[in-house]
């Protein structure tokens, strides 16, 4: 995945056209639900809704696969931890460590509950990591900033948040340049080589990145102030955003969905 996940992915879909405020509220609601719900089926449902919205917005499905692949080691780790420590009643595999050994005896038993718990965490993690790009890839950052301002955030703060989002692809391309430069000097550990040698090569990557970022920060500060950043209390905007009926419908539907899921979650 060379393309950045926060870069706007142009489109004309229903989800793209939603007002940024609608999407921000949606993001808050969904994060709450993901955070609160501990039930496997409900989490699966939430994840399914996210994936469906992802497809409605015509975002590349490859990105979701990418997330899945990236999360697999996490899943494996969770699986092992759960398997070893989760108190279960439905053993699938007998304890690996005989019970006569003190302290750790009886551990290593893999229970159904442990596996389900790992799967649940996996669903929730995946739903969470899809959420940000679902919003940031369907909304140009300056529109997102405008949405935040209209919701009452100070402009400077909103701009800083969106500028940070905007920096990600710039830093990424810079990393590419540095890696290439180091490769020319016969450093190849970024691609091959053991994990340890990769870790050791990080300063070579990070030092120019940080120095470059700091230099850029100063000239950027000059450039931004020279363009009257933060001058007026009443900043104006060339773009305009409007809540249309579809925004209200979407917001009401998301709220009802959120409340519904939360009620279901407490009953289960």
């Amino acid at each position: 995945m060379s393309k950045s996940l926060v870069v706007y992915f142009p489109g004309q879909t229903f989800f793209h056209k939603l007002d940024p405020r609608t999407k921000i509220i949606f993001m808050v609601l969904v994060s709450t639900v993901i955070f609160a719900v501990q039930d496997l089926y409900l989490s699966a449902f939430i994840l399914a809704v996210m994936v469906i919205l992802w497809m409605v917005a015509r975002l590349p499905v490859a990105i979701v696969y990418g997330f899945l692949k990236a999360l697999l080691p996490v899943f494996a780790f969770l699986f092992i931890v759960q398997a070893l420590l989760y108190p279960g009643v439905t053993p699938i595999i007998k304890p690996l460590i005989p019970s006569f050994i003190p302290w750790i005896g009886g551990m290593g038993q893999i229970n159904l509950e442990g596996i389900l718990f790992a799967v649940l965490l996996m669903f929730r993690l995946l739903a969470m990591v899809i959420l940000l790009p679902l919003v940031s890839m369907t909304t140009p950052v300056h529109i997102l900033a405008l949405g935040m301002v209209r919701m009452g955030l100070p402009y400077r703060l909103a701009y800083t948040i969106t500028a940070a989002l905007n920096m990600v692809p710039i830093l990424q391309s810079e990393i590419g340049v540095i890696v290439d430069a180091q490769k020319l000097r016969a450093m190849s550990t970024f691609e091959k080589g053991s994990i340890w040698s990769k870790v050791k090569s990080y300063p070579v990557l990070v030092t120019p990145l940080v120095i470059g970022a700091m230099r850029r920060a100063q000239s950027m500060a000059v450039a931004m102030d020279s363009r009257a950043f933060g001058a007026m209390k009443t900043r104006t905007y060339i773009e305009d955003i409007n809540l249309r009926p579809v925004d209200w419908i979407f917001m009401i539907a998301s709220t009802i969905g959120t409340v519904g899921i939360l009620i279901l979650a407490t009953k289960i």
């Binding site: 706007y8 140009p140 300056h142 905007n166 450039a223 363009r227 104006t236 060339i238």
Partner: peptide, 18 residues
Amino acid sequence: NQLFNVNVQCEIAFGCEN
């Protein structure tokens, strides 16, 4: 270093908006 907005329109509008 002085171009930090997403597109040319935002870039040029930035100062006027401020």
